[in-house]
Amino acid sequence: MSVDMSAEARSRFVRLGETERTVVNFFMNGRPVSAMQGDTLLTAMLQQGDHVRRSEFGGEKRAGFCLMGACQDCWVWNAEGGRLRACSTEVVEGMAVSTNAPESTWPNLA
């Protein structure tokens, strides 16, 4: 079986069960999207696309790595600019998350 990887912004994680849960609505980069109660932010965000942030060193997409809070690869940011570890943060109704580090918008005064 070959894999169709042409579609842009397709989900990375694939649900295999537990799909009868309550729907939770949240915002990703300002866009209203939905997840299920009990999803981590990582699961919820990787249903909406194929990454949660970009590496500030190489620019490549990142989508988490260890899923147990050890690697820090899945950092995302809340509306206040606070950093969240997507793999160990549960998605809650009305949450707003950003895939861009707030400091990436700071002026470079160097």
């Binding site: 694939v14 649900r15 069960g17 990787l46 988490g64 260890c66 899923l67």
Partner: peptide
Amino acid sequence: YTLGAAQVALKSQAVAV
């Protein structure tokens, strides 16, 4: 992903990576 990550995804989130 790490093997552990793949297992966590399945066990605690019912998703495949």
